[in-house]
């Protein structure tokens, strides 16, 4: 009995080993684990779930969403990096988790070796904003005030080493502003501090404060993303104001290194359809989110460029670098 069982087990193992390479042909043959690297209820989570339900239809297999939030998104990303590269574990990823954080502290993955970018699906849209009843109507007025009152103005970010912090610090450095950085724990507390008048200006995603912007409680002074926003069409971008950089971070889909190219292609195609699906776009638009597809290779190249660019600047911006 025991020997028979052993033989059967061995046969199964062998069969799996032999059948392995051909698995990609009928991929996906079982549900796919989709690890979301932020908590349930946030923007990333909402967008990911909206897209995954569309992607499920196309792939004909369920994407099982699991939230693995924490440590600036690195916890979820490392979970993907550690998984087997068989196409059945993928996850969401933000730009700092691969391009910036690995430079500042130890993470258990090599961002460009252990992970493959399947595709980027949605840009995060950022801006510098002040309270609706503050005296500054334009970016120039604000800059002038900071220059006249060195050391008095405070700016908030959702945390040290976030793109929000780095971009704002770099703006300050290029303009020679003397102001103080106050890192909060996430965008929610940052927004509360701005609304309560405890900091003067913050860099945050516009989607998370859309309602306050429409109500006039928050005024956008400068768009730090590449292009102007439909919500505040008159506010200029930082590129228009003569800066040579801007705040670029996408929500992307990542897979572990070693995932078969055929599987990557199928996944990428599914998310491309999901990004341009009318229903998804409409649901996202209600929350002021705007999906946009970028092929994986192209986004990977962008990440490598951004990593090199920001890496060189980190010490100047007052961020500690990994020893």
């Amino acid at each position: 009995m025991g020997r028979k069982l052993l033989a059967v087990m061995l046969a199964v193992v062998l069969a799996v080993a032999i059948a392995g390479p051909s698995l990609a042909d009928n991929y996906p043959s079982k549900p796919i684990k989709f690890i979301i690297n932020f908590s349930a209820g946030g923007t990333t989570d909402t967008a990911a779930r909206l897209m995954s339900s569309k992607a499920t239809e196309i792939l004909q297999q369920a994407l099982i969403c699991m939230n693995k939030p924490g440590a600036g998104g690195t916890l979820g990303v490392s979970e993907v990096a550690r998984a087997k590269g068989n196409g059945y574990t993928i996850g969401t990823c933000n730009m700092p988790a691969v391009a910036i954080i690995p430079l500042t502290r130890k993470v258990p993955y090599e961002p460009f070796k252990d992970l493959v970018q399947v595709c980027a699906v949605m840009p995060y849209e950022y801006a510098l904003m002040v309270r609706g009843d503050s005296p500054w109507k334009t970016w120039e007025e604000f800059v002038e005030y900071v220059k006249k009152n060195p050391g008095k103005v405070t700016y908030g970010s959702p945390g040290t080493g976030t793109t929000n912090h780095l971009v704002t610090a770099r703006i300050g450095k290029e303009l020679g502003l003397s102001w103080n950085h106050v890192p909060f724990q996430g965008g929610v507390k940052e927004t509360a501090a701005l609304l309560g008048g405890h900091v003067d200006i913050i860099n945050n995603t516009t989607a998370s404060v859309a309602s306050s912007i429409k109500a006039g409680k928050i005024r956008v002074l400068l768009v730090t993303s590449e292009e102007r926003f439909g919500m505040v069409p008159d506010v200029p971008t930082m590129k228009e104001k003569g800066f040579k950089f801007s705040q670029i971070s996408y929500m992307s889909v990542v897979a572990p290194a070693g995932t078969p190219p055929a599987a990557l292609e199928k996944l990428s195609a599914a998310f491309q359809v999901a990004c341009s699906d009318k229903g998804v776009i409409k649901s996202c638009a209600q929350l002021d989110l705007h999906p946009k597809f970028i092929p994986g290779k192209q986004y990977q190249a962008l990440l490598e460029k951004l990593s090199a660019e920001w890496g060189a600047l980190l010490p100047e911006l007052g961020v500690k670098i990994k020893k």
Binding site: S39, G41, L195, D288
Partner: peptide, 25 residues
């Protein structure tokens, strides 16, 4: 204000958002 006061409220905010009710003023 669109700012959740407690841990569970933060999660419930997701339910508002998915139904197109952006929390805030």
């Amino acid at each position: 204000l669109g700012i959740p006061g407690a841990l569970s409220a933060a999660v419930i905010m997701g339910a508002f958002m998915i139904h197109g009710l952006a929390p805030g003023p």
